[in-house]
Simulated assay, not measured.
Amino acid sequence: MTISHSLATRLRSGETVRSAWSTISDPLLLENISALGFDAVTMDMQHGSHTEASICQGIGTIKAAGKPAIVRIPVGRFDIASRALDFGANAVIAPMINSVEDAQAFAAAMKYPPVGERSWGPLRSDISYGQAGSNEYLLTVNQETLSFAMIETRAAYEALDDILAVRGIDGVFVGPADFSIAWSNGREANPLSEDIVVPLTRIAQKAAASNKLAGIYAPNSAFAKRYNALGFRFITLASDRGYLAAGASAMLKAWDE
């Protein structure tokens, strides 16, 4: 299966990809979010309500809208990373990758040999499982499916160079809320903190120097633009709950004017 204009190709060419963030597993809501103007859709299993069943169905919904599907797995559930790829995910974000060992375990689940240890078993109809033509998928998928290791703690930040050097890790992804908690030694959870701008810049720079990708969650459009200027090219913007709140707020404000 040859993937044209893939998420991997777009990001590696320097394009900025703006993704929606889905926390609510309702299929009709996901269908509507997939139809919005985002470049991709990310489904959150860590803090959102998505399950294996909802991501299996949701990946089909997102791809039917012509967009890449990304999954954030729960902490340490690298088995679900492999499952998400079998379901057809274009990328997986793994939270709390705090060491080289964490990164290696994640990469092993994400990549087929000789890079990793992923077991063969793609599920979707566009992947010719065990049939003629399946070798093309096998030979291209390690490059086409992206593994993003989340950098959220001081331990991860200190191990950044070594994490980036792990074969099979395609990029890093920052959760600025958790990173702000770690950076402030537990004094605040503030993704808008000015104190984390310098380390965030260093993360993006080090990723670029390693020929790896840099992604980040942005709580609003202003910070999305700021992060983009720092060198982050994969940016997830707010969340479905935020879109509902923003839309309702704008309508009520217009009513009152």
Rank of each mutant, 00 (worst) to 15 (best):
A159G: 02
M45F: 06
A224M: 11
A64R: 09
G88S: 06
S19N: 06
L252F: 01
Y217S: 03
E188I: 02
D161T: 15
I62V: 10
P95E: 14
R241F: 15
M251Q: 12
N135A: 15
S25F: 01
Q104C: 05
G48H: 02
T9A: 09
T145R: 13
Y227N: 02
E101I: 12
P114M: 06
D170R: 08
P74W: 00
G14R: 08
R18A: 05
G168V: 00
E158Q: 15
E101Q: 15
S210V: 12
K63Y: 08
R124A: 14
G14V: 07
D44W: 02
I62A: 04
F173S: 07
R72D: 11
A207I: 01
R72W: 09
N135E: 14
L7W: 06
P199D: 09
S22M: 03
D102P: 10
N228D: 09
S125P: 14
S180E: 13
D39G: 09
P191C: 12
D39R: 06
G60D: 09
D195L: 12
D79L: 06
E257R: 09
F173L: 07
S25W: 01
L252W: 00
A35V: 00
S119K: 13
F173N: 06
P219M: 05
I80V: 11
K253E: 05
P191D: 10
P122A: 15
A65R: 11
T201P: 10
V75M: 10
D240V: 05
I127E: 03
A189V: 09
V197F: 05
L7S: 08
I127L: 13
S125A: 15
V198L: 09
A53Q: 06
P74C: 00
T42V: 14
A8D: 10
A238F: 11
C56N: 14
S25L: 01
M45R: 00
D26M: 00
Y227L: 12
R18L: 08
G247Q: 08
V17C: 02
E101G: 11
A156F: 04
A218D: 01
A207K: 01
M43E: 00
A105L: 13
D86W: 04
G130I: 09
K225C: 07
T2S: 13
M1E: 07
T42M: 09
G14L: 10
N190L: 04
V197H: 06
S239L: 01
P74R: 00
D79A: 08
V92P: 13
H47N: 01
R226V: 11
P199V: 13
T51P: 07
P68M: 01
G175N: 11
V197C: 08
T23K: 07
I216D: 00
I62W: 00
N142F: 12
I93P: 02
A149I: 03
G116M: 05
A84R: 06
A105Y: 05
S34L: 01
P191Q: 13
A229S: 13
L237P: 11
L139F: 13
D44H: 01
P191H: 10
S54Q: 07
D102H: 13
A238M: 00
A109T: 07
A108D: 10
S184Q: 05
L30S: 04
I73G: 03
L192G: 14
Q57F: 11
L230N: 00
E136A: 15
I70G: 01
A35E: 07
N90H: 14
K212F: 00
A246S: 15
C56V: 03
A64C: 12
Q143D: 15
D86L: 08
I3D: 02
R233N: 12
S221M: 12
A229E: 15
